[in-house]
């Protein structure tokens, strides 16, 4: 079964409409599955389930053993672990076309980080049997997964170094740059993601009060601007200097 989708059909579809077939998905080009053959996409589409999540709803919990992966069709998701005293440490964000849960499926271990929708999110749940069949039959896809896994390992290493060696202001500047690179900016130049100060603090790894103080400090210095929860990067170069990031 192969679907031929015209560009017109794709443009006519609302972004949140549930895709019955991976070929029809608007996030398809960004997706990990983009290079797969039509047969492989048929296999993925055959058993998948579309699950919708409300803003703030938990998608997956640390410690569970889901026997499949989630591919985000539309939405923004935070990945975090629970520290002692129930404090969240945000590890990273997931957006359209990215996968959740593939590493625990490959390693046959429980999920190591929880995921919560930051806005109304649609995801496709692909069962283990379809996912593994596609891996076995598509060496290029397996290599892509390996690359993704290695990349995430590298990013985790960078995060450990950042948490261990950088001060809070340096980490905050780095996080703001990461958020800008991941989600981009809206028409007014604000980051295209709405995070509470607590969530930013959970990503930086500090107290909410410190983040509030440092955001107003960066604002006074003219490096960022803010309006309610929204933040805009005004001087990227200066933030890079503060964060000790060299391009």
């Amino acid at each position: 079964m192969t679907f031929i989708i015209s560009l017109k059909d794709k443009l006519n579809r609302k972004p949140l409409e549930t895709p019955h077939h991976c070929q029809m998905c608007l996030s398809h080009q960004k997706s990990t599955f983009s290079d797969l053959s039509n047969d492989a996409k048929d296999e993925l589409s055959r058993l998948k389930t579309c699950v919708s999540f409300r803003k703030g709803q938990v998608i997956i919990h640390e410690g569970a053993r889901p026997q499949g992966v989630y591919c985000i069709h539309n939405g923004k998701v935070k990945l975090y672990t629970m520290g002692t005293e129930g404090k969240e440490q945000i590890i990273r964000f997931i957006t359209n076309g990215e996968l959740i849960g593939y590493r625990s499926l490959l390693s046959d271990e429980p999920i190591s980080a929880s995921a919560t929708a930051l806005e109304d999110t649609f995801a496709c749940y692909i069962p283990k049997s379809s996912f593994f069949k596609v891996i076995e039959e598509n060496p290029k896809f397996s290599l892509k997964l390996l690359k993704m896994s290695c990349h995430e390992l590298g990013e985790a290493g960078k995060m450990i170094t950042s948490l261990a060696q950088k001060n809070v202001k340096e980490r905050l500047a780095e996080i703001l740059l990461i958020l800008r690179a991941t989600f981009g900016e809206d028409e007014e130049g604000y980051l295209n993601i709405s995070l509470t100060r607590e969530e930013i603090a959970n990503m930086v790894g500090t107290a909410t009060e410190s983040v509030i103080r440092l955001i107003s400090e960066l604002k006074k210095e003219g490096y960022i601007s803010s309006k309610g929860k929204r933040i805009a990067v005004a001087d990227r170069g200066a933030l890079q200097q503060i964060a000790n990031i060299f391009e």
Binding site: T49, P66, Y125, S129
Partner: peptide, 9 residues
């Protein structure tokens, strides 16, 4: 909202 939906096939 607080729990996670998990299915097994």
């Amino acid at each position: 909202m607080q729990s996670s939906f998990i299915q097994f096939h």
